[in-house]
Amino acid sequence: MASTTPPIARTPRTVPARQRRGPALGRSLPHVALLLSAFAWIYPLLWGLSGALKTDMGFLDSGLGLIPHEYRWHNFVDAWNSAGIGTYFVNTVLITVATVFFTLLFSSAAGYVLARTEFPGRRALLAVIAVTFFLPRGYTIIPVYDLVNHLGLLDSIWAVVLVQVANAMVFNTFMFMGYFRTVTKDVEEAAMVDGATFHQLYFRIALPLARPMLASLGLFVFISSWNDFLIPLVFTLGRPERQTISVGLYSFIGQTSTDWSVLCAGSVISLLPIVLVFAFAQRHVVSAIAGAVKG
């Protein structure tokens, strides 16, 4: 698919002018290859989008075709109302917003004091962070389920938020700690001289300074919370009306439904926020993700 020759191979610097002007084809060839593979790459997504606009008959007839014979925008209304996507959507928004908020609040606070203050037990905590960093995720879902059950939170939106925030804690705290260590302490020291309290130092000075980190980690948490499947699946098994979009669509398939175009519309609705965020904050999303390997 992406097996095009690297274009560096065909743009030698010292080619005579005559030759360079000649084959315009030679320079547009990489673009043709890239455009074709890019189209093939997102074809399944385009197909899903067009499926959301097809009529039931059109869906069966047109197969792999991308252009619906007849546009049926009402699929989105059907998905939102009768397939219950509206409820799932609201649940997903609430869960994602709460998860992002609490993850950033708790992990930035923890990262701040771990980076800036000294207190008995600090080294032990750092050791715990180092060890849990290497623990594989997801193998403790059974005791967590039991714990949430004992807390009486099972089948609630808060259960999902709580577990997601807890799972995001170590990584994000580690990132904030690293960030606060690189930020200069001058402003904080000046504020201390002026008699600022501990809370003022954190909320008025440190947190605003950490804005770039808040933005990229926030994006990261947003995407993973919105896309999460296992946690909302397990913690809302008993209450379908509390489910998120991914889990809701999954059970929708199970109901031996043949409403394919409505299913496509539901998928489009669930992908839309992510695509929008990606479109507007693409640079930040990419740098947030690239940051994971640079450290």
Binding site: I42, G48, L60, D61, N227, F229, S246, C264, V275
Partner: peptide
């Protein structure tokens, strides 16, 4: 783009895409 999308939703779309509809 596919990397920021939910694997569950991706699976829904592919399940439909691989089914035998028309052409």
């Amino acid at each position: 783009l596919p990397a920021v999308m939910s694997p569950a939703i991706i699976a829904v779309i592919f399940q439909l895409l691989l089914s035998n509809f028309g052409d």
